[in-house]
Amino acid sequence: MWWRRTLPAVVAVVGLSGLGLVTVGLTGGPARPPRPPADAPTRTQPAPDLAPLNRAAPVRVQIPAIDVHAEIVPVGVDAAGVLEVPPLDQPTIAGWYRHGASPGETGNAVLVGHVDSPAGPAVFFDLGLLRAGQQIQVTRADARVTTFTVDGVQAYPKDRFPSGLVYGPADTAGLRLITCGGRFDSTTGNYVDNVVVFATRTA
């Protein structure tokens, strides 16, 4: 998967499309990652009135509901404006888009991760199983642990990725988790969708 960047006005908006994750070497074809139902409920409670945190890089993410306990590394974009992702030979690591907000700052912090690899399911394989109300903890370099509550999970065709909702401005501390998903197109080697988890800081 890859992310392309454009720069409307002042805000850098990173879109998502194109190349799927490598799955060569999986016997019998890749296992299909869970897809969130189209009518998955969303969480509508107002965000708590929490003072925003100062900037600090995230170093670890935990998602108890899907047994994710992963290291986070910073990622940027290459010369072509494509968002970098962790190396495919380290499929258990997540990436933080370092040019955006850090978790706990005002704005949407973005974490990306592979859905699978030649060895099998990767760090964000089960994102589609998350549901509103479940929690995500992010440990930062300043030793603070920020807790986010899932607002909703959606799958989007790659040519209709919601850049504004993911990378656009926000007046609260949000978190976005992104991976590939949906049907695997064996002719192109790509997944046709992206799965996006939307969450808000609650502690």
Rank of each mutant, 00 (worst) to 15 (best):
R140W: 06
S186L: 10
N190F: 14
G174S: 12
Y191L: 13
S117Q: 06
A80Y: 05
I66M: 03
A94K: 02
R176V: 01
T172L: 09
F124A: 08
L21D: 15
L53T: 03
D151E: 11
R140C: 07
P8T: 09
T146D: 14
G20V: 10
R176Y: 00
T106F: 00
G25C: 07
A203N: 15
P157N: 01
I93G: 01
T92F: 05
A12T: 13
L111R: 00
Q137A: 14
T6M: 10
G15S: 14
Q62A: 12
L165Q: 06
F125Q: 03
V166Y: 05
L26H: 06
P30D: 08
P157W: 01
G120E: 06
G28F: 10
R144K: 14
Y156G: 05
I136M: 02
A199C: 12
G189A: 11
L16Q: 13
T139V: 08
Q134N: 07
A79M: 05
I66V: 15
T27V: 13
L7C: 01
G95N: 11
L88D: 09
N194V: 12
G189Y: 08
L21W: 02
P30L: 05
A51K: 13
S186N: 07
V59H: 03
D151C: 00
V61N: 02
A143H: 14
P91S: 11
V75D: 12
R176D: 00
V145D: 01
Q134A: 08
G15V: 02
R43L: 14
A56Q: 04
W3N: 07
G95Y: 07
P169I: 11
G113K: 03
P118T: 04
G189D: 11
R5C: 03
A51I: 06
V77C: 04
G133K: 07
A38K: 07
F124I: 02
V73Q: 13
L7W: 06
G113Y: 01
L50A: 00
G133M: 09
L16A: 15
P37Y: 01
D49P: 00
V150I: 14
L175C: 06
H69T: 13
G107K: 05
R5I: 06
T172G: 08
D185W: 09
L26S: 05
A94Y: 01
